[in-house]
Structure formats: C-alpha cells, structure tokens
Computed example of a mutant assay.
Amino acid sequence: MAGEIPDLHALERTGTGKGAARAARRAHLVPGIVFGGDKDPLPINLPYHDLIKRLKAGRFKSTLFNLKVDGHEDVRVICRDVQRDIVKDLPTHLDFMRLRRTSKINLFIPVEFVGEEESPGLKKGGVMTVIRPEVELIVTAGDIPEKLVADISKLDIGDTVTISAIDLPAGTKPTIDRDFVICNVTAPSALAAAEDEEDEVQETEVIEQTDDTVEEEKEYAEE
C-alpha cells in the first residue's frame, strides 16, 4: 500500500538571479528550483522555519514530497541538492526534481515488527534487538509502500530476521545487495553472563607425589 506523501508548500519566485535570491532570504525564505518532467524549471521559495524543521528531522533528500505551489498543479518531487552557507551551515538554495509515477527512487521505508507475544525467545526472557528500524529501498514513485512487516513470532534465542524473510512489494528491492539482518533475539545479559561462567573451567595442575618430589619439597623448605 502506498504511504502518505507529505505536502511541501512553496511560493512561486518572481525574478531570478542573485538579487531575487537575496531578497527571498531577507524575507525569511529559501530559494529553490524545480526541474525535470519535460516542463520548464519553476523557481520557488520555501518558508525558512518550515524547511529547517524538515532538515532537522532527517532523510530530507530521500523523502518524496507532494509539492504544492499556488497556481500550479501538485507534483511529486525529491530533493537533489541542498546548498548551504559555508560559515553558518544554513540552507541557501535547494534543487528539486519532478518525478513521474513510474520513476525509480531510493527511499527509507520503516519496519513494523509483529508477533512479539508468540516469540519463543522472548517468552524465555530473551531480548529483541532492532538492527534496522528502516530499510532503504529502490521503489516506484507511484507505488511507495507505507511500511515493511517483520514477523518475529517464531524467533527463538539466537535467531534473526533478515531482509530475505520480508515480503517486499512488487517492483522494489533493497539498495544493499546482500541478505542483511533486520533484528535478532538474544539471551538477557544476566543469563548470558551465567552461561559464560559455566563455560570457564579452571584448570589445576596435579603433580603426582613420588619419593623424588617429596624430597625436593623438603629441600626447598629447608632453604
């Protein structure tokens, strides 16, 4: 099922060049450009504070947005570049690319874990460790999955869930070309420590007592 695509509101920017860009920044706006999709480039301005919040939230350049600009049809875009001030590290310009529904893009998709109540390992007191709460996939812009589902109902202590165990939507594939781990179930630290102690066997050297060794011990004690 396609996930909800967040809206990104922008204003059409009148004028181009450094003068218009500086005027936008004085008005607490960040200039940008939308290109691609067999259409003319569209200069835009984005509200500074809204943009900063989205950048701090992370994954900005791998998030698909529904761009809304007054006087224009909504369009799906993905950010291809964020230019920053070299001193203040604040955004000064953004480049967005229009996408068709058939376009392939890389996006991070969250993982939902189900079956915790039935997991034999968790019933024994095991601990589930999430290695990847989200997975980067190559997806089609018109069919983005809302989430991936990892079933851990059969996991015992020492078991793992890898990406090959998760059903991926048709037409999608991971960006990593190997069967990487999503989560695992391990023994609780107290139990693991107890098992380690049992594995440690203290070796004691046993010396067979003979007449020679007894005589040597007496001579050593007299010294």
Rank of each mutant, 00 (worst) to 15 (best):
T14I: 08
R80W: 00
E195L: 14
F108K: 12
R101V: 01
K104N: 07
L29M: 15
F60C: 08
L94G: 01
I152R: 12
K18T: 14
N184R: 11
I176P: 00
I176Y: 07
G125M: 09
L155Q: 11
P188D: 14
G126Y: 09
K147I: 04
R101A: 13
A150L: 08
D151N: 15
I33E: 06
K124G: 04
K173A: 11
N106H: 14
R13C: 06
E203I: 15
C79T: 13
F65S: 05
E118R: 13
P110T: 02
E203L: 14
I138L: 12
G126D: 07
L46A: 05
D7A: 14
E217M: 10
R98K: 08
T162P: 00
I176E: 13
A23L: 15
T92S: 07
D196E: 15
R59A: 10
E4Q: 13
V87Y: 11
P169V: 10
M1Y: 06
I182D: 06
K173V: 02
A170D: 13
V111I: 05
V149H: 05
V206I: 14
K53Q: 13
K56H: 12
T204Y: 12
R25F: 01
V127G: 04
V135H: 08
A193T: 12
N106C: 02
K147L: 07
S103G: 03
G36P: 07
A20R: 06
D212L: 10
E118L: 09
K39N: 11
G58H: 07
A20W: 02
D95G: 10
H72T: 07
V206G: 00
K53H: 09
I152V: 15
L94Y: 04
K39A: 11
H93M: 01
V77M: 10
L51T: 08
I78T: 02
K56V: 13
D167E: 15
P47W: 09
E208F: 04
A27L: 11
G36N: 08
E222F: 06
T14S: 12
Y48H: 14
T160E: 12
H72N: 13
L64Q: 07
D167S: 14
R178G: 02
Q83G: 02
G171Q: 08
I152E: 08
G158S: 09
E219D: 12
D167T: 15
V111F: 04
A193H: 01
V114Y: 01
L42R: 10
L55Y: 03
D74K: 12
D179F: 06
P110H: 02
A221W: 12
A192W: 01
S103H: 03
F180C: 10
V181S: 05
G15A: 11
D95Q: 05
A57C: 02
D177W: 01
G58T: 05
G125W: 11
G37L: 09
L148A: 11
V149W: 04
F96I: 08
E208M: 05
G15I: 06
D70I: 09
L29E: 12
V75Y: 00
V201P: 00
L168K: 06
G15N: 08
R13A: 11
Y220N: 09
V82H: 09
L94K: 02
L46S: 04
R22F: 01
L29A: 11
S164E: 10
H72C: 03
V77Y: 08
I166S: 07
E117K: 15
T16E: 15
M1W: 03
I109F: 04
P91C: 12
S119D: 10
L11C: 00
D38Y: 04
L11H: 13
K218D: 05
T186N: 09
K147F: 05
